[in-house]
């Protein structure tokens, strides 16, 4: 549904997004996880055609964001970090305006607005001025705005930021209920949010994708595992791979690439096992040459630490606010 290839966005000298590539299949909920300033919002803004990429390609439902922006926009519902609301409008007026803007036929506007208001639980405030709404209601009106034209793809930028725990729970429920009909990308800097709402996760840090996997795989990888990069010469890739897989404590061996007989592998160990010494011995005993052996998952760990740190900070803030 969504395909991104080597996407780069530069501002003056800063690189906000650096050569990222990923795919999202139809019906998936994908979490964009990363600390603030990692490039989540930039990526989303490129996907929604708000800004063009510096280089690389991105397409939504087969339409390129640069060549056919109108087609892309028709298929995307977007909730920016601050919901784009007009404070001087009433909720139903606002939703009707957005409905017409999104190209919903005139006859269907009021029906669709009623449906969406029901779905996002904003019916009881539909005659209220947006400026009088609480933060939670604003967020829900923002979400209602995004799903009005029943888009194939929903892009939600920090949909739970600034809400209280009850509202966060409701918003997550709502997002989960939207899955299936829509392909959803949501960004967050809170790890449990991804665990609770998403199928897939893309961890992004400093403009680079550090990991993308299903939530189960990733969380198990994050819990005390180690990945090691091994570079070996002296045999075929398959032989080496077989030998490395046989080392006790190794969970997975991924062949990265081969150049001039130099094969590199990423070896993942089971939790709590240090397999580096065993790997080295196995290579040498087999009569091959070991060129390099170093842990590679550091960046992922760093991100994870940063994420958990910022989450604790956010929780502390929340508690401080409630006192």
């Amino acid at each position: 549904m969504i395909s991104v290839q080597n996407l780069t966005k530069r501002y003056d000298r800063n690189v906000a997004v650096n050569e990222i590539s990923f795919e999202v299949a139809k019906g998936q909920i994908v979490g964009f996880l990363g600390p603030n300033g990692a490039g989540k919002t930039t990526t989303m803004r490129i996907l929604t055609c708000f800004m063009p990429p510096t280089s690389g390609r991105a397409s939504v439902a087969g339409f390129d964001v640069l060549d056919q922006p109108l087609e892309v926009k028709r298929r995307i519902g977007y909730l920016p970090e601050t919901p784009p609301l007009y404070p001087e409008m009433e909720v139903h007026e606002y939703l009707a305006f957005v409905a017409r803007l999104k190209g919903i036929p005139h006859a269907d506007v009021s029906r669709r607005v009623a449906e969406v208001s029901e779905r996002c639980a904003v019916t009881d405030v539909s005659r209220k001025l947006i400026s009088k709404l609480s933060k939670g209601y604003r967020q829900r009106v923002g979400l209602a705005q995004a799903i009005l034209h029943n888009p194939d793809v929903l892009i939600l930028d920090e949909p739970t930021a600034g809400l209280d725990p009850k509202q966060i729970h409701e918003t997550r429920q709502l997002i989960r209920s939207l899955a299936g009909e829509h392909t959803i990308i949501l960004s967050t800097h809170i790890l449990p949010e991804v665990e609770q709402t998403c199928d897939h996760v893309i961890i992004i840090s400093k403009g680079k994708i550090v990991a993308q996997d299903t939530v189960e795989n990733l969380t198990s990888r994050l819990r005390g595992q180690e990945a090691v990069l091994v570079e070996v010469t002296g045999a075929g890739a398959d032989d080496i791979r077989g030998a490395l897989s046989g080392v006790p404590g190794v969970a997975r061996v991924v062949h990265r690439d081969s150049r001039n007989g130099l094969h590199s592998f990423e070896v993942e160990s089971a939790p709590g096992q240090n397999v580096r010494a065993l790997l080295a011995r196995r290579v040498v005993e087999s009569g091959w040459s070991l060129h390099e052996l170093r842990p590679v998952a550091m960046s992922l760990e760093e991100v994870f630490l940063e994420l958990t740190a910022s989450e604790k900070a956010a929780e502390a803030d929340g508690k401080g606010g409630r006192q």
């Binding site: 055609c49 708000f50 803007l101």
Partner: peptide, 13 residues
């Protein structure tokens, strides 16, 4: 208000 994001990501020229 940030509503420019709504206008510029809607299917209008």
């Amino acid at each position: 208000q940030g509503t420019i994001e709504l206008l510029m990501t809607s299917p209008v020229r």
